[in-house]
């Protein structure tokens, strides 16, 4: 089992969800986050004061999958979130030690899907 964590541009979220859906990946958690990479993206200006070093708004996706879904998930996120521009984001693939479905108490690969 793997946990796939992706940091993407907020405006690409609909496309990424579409791509995941196309590959039968329905279970996703999304959250608003702030962060910065190497990008110097669009910065905000308040009354002519440029805010330097601002953290930029991103969306973090978390998808827990069995091994055979790792590749399709990564592909889906890349194809939905890639614009070729700086700031498109990153994908992290982590080992997932355990998974428990709270309702039934099932664990492991059965619980994940």
């Amino acid at each position: 089992m793997k946990l796939i964590v992706a940091i993407i541009q907020p405006d690409r979220l609909p496309e990424v969800l579409d791509e995941l859906e196309k590959r039968q990946i329905h279970l996703v958690t999304a959250s608003n986050v702030l962060g910065r990479g190497r990008q110097h993206g669009v910065s905000e200006v308040y009354r002519s004061h440029q805010e330097v070093g601002n953290l930029l708004k991103k969306v973090r996706l978390e998808v827990a999958v069995n091994e055979d879904f790792v590749k399709p998930t990564v592909e889906a996120i890349v194809s939905g979130a890639n614009t070729g521009q700086i700031g498109d984001g990153k994908i992290f693939v982590l080992e997932l030690a355990e998974c428990v479905r709270i309702r039934t108490g099932e664990t492991g690969c059965v619980a994940i899907g």
């Binding site: 405006d11 690409r12 669009v42 905000e44 200006v45 708004k57």
Partner: peptide
């Protein structure tokens, strides 16, 4: 349009 008019037209959020 994707990023939003606030940031692109006014540089504010």
């Amino acid at each position: 349009e994707r990023v939003g008019l606030d940031l692109t037209q006014h540089r504010e959020a």
